[in-house]
Computed example of a mutant assay.
Amino acid sequence: MKSRMRILKAIQVLSMAVVVTSYGQMTYGAQASQNSTAPLSWAAKKCQLFTRFSLDEAKNNGDLGKAFLARQDQFIQSGCVARIHVCPTSQSELDYANRMSIFMINQGATGSFLPFLCDQG
């Protein structure tokens, strides 16, 4: 349990850094989307990667809860920019969140991009 709490705390700390970087990414993404011939912005590319990885991983893991998947889908539908917290509540969801985190960080995304965060309360 302590290990899970440490992992969740680490994910939370990394996720909080998004406030610092997301404004610039959203501004750049909005400018790039105005020109349809422009290459994908980094924010759009990260979202595309996250979406692809999540689809692949979700197929391999049927133990993800409906609420967890619905929150993740809301994050994706926002263009991966809304601060929608996707809280893993089972071991399968935590394992999935950790795999997604590793995939995205290996692609160059920072941990602050990820939506995996549990509200304190």
Rank of each mutant, 00 (worst) to 15 (best):
F75G: 00
S33D: 08
A30K: 10
A82T: 05
I11W: 00
R83L: 02
F68C: 05
E57P: 00
T21N: 12
Q25S: 11
F75W: 14
G79N: 08
L69V: 07
A38Y: 09
T37D: 15
S92T: 13
N60Y: 05
T21A: 09
K66G: 03
A67E: 12
Q91L: 14
L55F: 06
S33K: 06
C80Y: 02
C80H: 04
V86Y: 01
S22R: 11
I76E: 06
L69A: 07
A32F: 03
A43K: 00
V19T: 13
S15Q: 08
T27C: 10
K45A: 09
S36H: 10
I11L: 13
S54D: 07
T51P: 03
S36G: 13
G79P: 09
N60F: 03
Y28K: 08
P88L: 02
S90N: 14
V13M: 15
E57G: 02
A70M: 04
C47Q: 01
P39N: 07
S92W: 05
G24T: 12
S54Q: 10
Q12W: 00
G29K: 00
I11S: 10
S33H: 08
S92F: 09
T37A: 14
D73K: 03
Q91I: 11
S92R: 09
V86T: 11
F50D: 05
I11C: 04
T21H: 13
H85Y: 04
K66T: 04
G29V: 00
C47P: 05
D73P: 00
I84R: 07
V20L: 12
Y23K: 15
S36F: 06
V20A: 11
G62L: 14
A43H: 01
S15V: 01
T89G: 10
S15P: 01
P88T: 07
Q12I: 01
C87F: 13
Q12V: 02
F50N: 07
V81M: 03
N35L: 10
M26Y: 08
S92H: 14
G24K: 13
G65F: 01
M26I: 14
L69T: 13
S22G: 11
N61I: 06
A58R: 03
A32L: 10
L40Q: 08
I11M: 11
C80V: 08
S22N: 14
A82I: 02
Q48T: 10
